[in-house]
Amino acid sequence: MKRKGRPVHGWVIVDKPLGLTSTQCLAKVRRLTQAAKAGHGGTLDPLATGILPIALGEATKTVAYVMGSGKTYRFTVRWGEATSTDDAEGPVIARSDERPDRAAIEAMLPGFVGEIMQRPPVYSALKVAGERAYDLARAGQAPDLASRPIRIDALRLADVPDPDHAVFEVDCGKGAYVRALARDFGQALGCFGHVVALRRTRVGRYGEDRAFSLDSLEELCQKDAAHAYLLPVETALDDIPALVVTGPQADRLRHGQSIRIALAAPGLPPEGELLVTADGKAVGIAERLSDEVRPLRLFNL
């Protein structure tokens, strides 16, 4: 059965509101744009707000590149309480009268920067023997999740509004859990802690300056003003070197055939992935090995 919808291709950067799941947000954007196909570039919890990149049509072929890119979050930690979910949604499971001062918080931060080991929250979407960790936890069978390496590029103390709270900003790589950071901050400071506010301000090159609220997106869709909110498919591939090819070369790639390029092609690495364009349009993603370029993923634009 053919999927209903229009052939809409590109990225929409949504400012996800509080209380909505990423899946619900995706469904609303797909309904507004009438796109035949859609996917998002990284889940946000219902209690989180901020940047949710949504891929439409052929842009779904580039979702993995967005999900693997760096992200920035601004979050508030409540000291003195640990919760079962490491955020404000779960019940309090431990309390402390200790409260860290600014100096203690700042002295702790360098230990969380770089390649570190992090144990994911029990209430997470990770799979354990085919089951989601949060489903097991809700059934009273909380799994013992192993720590795994993550990358924290930068960590800043943004504000200490009162003794019970501190506001942070973090630049991190794929797979980092902010809720787990809050939990581990509290343990390191001997006072417990959990996230009470979380906002994602950047995913790769997509920041708040490119984001639309669902209400503003609805207005633009009613005006059929796709040019105002729809970013080209290839914006997800800004970090990949670009190769401009001729029309005949593009045709060969589209038919699954390799092409040859000069070994000393300026501005291109000797091997690795390339964004291939022809006549100002994205053809697809290819892989270069020496003078050979073979297609990996082609766009039907």
Rank of each mutant, 00 (worst) to 15 (best):
V29H: 05
R30S: 11
R30N: 03
R31I: 02
R31H: 14
T33L: 14
A36P: 00
K37R: 15
A38I: 07
G39V: 13
G39W: 03
H40E: 04
H40A: 10
G41T: 10
G42I: 14
G42Q: 12
T43A: 13
L44P: 01
L47P: 02
L47W: 06
T49P: 07
I51M: 01
P53S: 04
I54Q: 03
I54T: 06
A55F: 02
G57R: 03
A59P: 00
T60F: 08
T60L: 05
T62N: 04
T62R: 05
V66F: 06
G70E: 09
G70D: 14
T72A: 09
T76K: 12
T76V: 15
V77H: 00
A82V: 01
T83V: 09
T83Q: 07
D87M: 09
A88H: 07
A88N: 05
P91I: 09
P91N: 06
R95D: 00
R95A: 01
P100A: 13
P100I: 13
P100Y: 14
D101Q: 11
D101G: 11
D101I: 12
R102Y: 01
E106P: 03
A107L: 13
A107G: 13
A107V: 10
A107S: 14
A107D: 13
M108E: 10
L109P: 04
L109W: 07
P110C: 06
G111D: 11
F112G: 01
V113G: 06
G114P: 01
G114M: 08
M117T: 01
M117E: 11
Q118M: 06
R119N: 00
R119L: 01
P120R: 12
P120C: 07
P121Y: 12
P121G: 13
V122Q: 09
V122T: 12
Y123F: 15
A125C: 15
A125L: 11
K127N: 08
K127F: 14
K127W: 04
G130W: 08
G130I: 12
G130R: 13
E131M: 07
E131P: 01
R132K: 15
A133S: 15
Y134F: 10
D135P: 01
L136A: 04
L136K: 10
A137S: 03
R138H: 00
R138S: 00
A139R: 08
Q141Y: 00
Q141K: 13
A142Y: 02
A142F: 01
A142G: 02
L145G: 09
S147P: 08
R148I: 05
R148T: 06
P149C: 09
I150R: 03
R151L: 12
D153F: 14
A154Y: 04
A154W: 08
A154E: 09
A154T: 08
A154H: 11
L155T: 12
L155C: 11
R156S: 06
V160D: 05
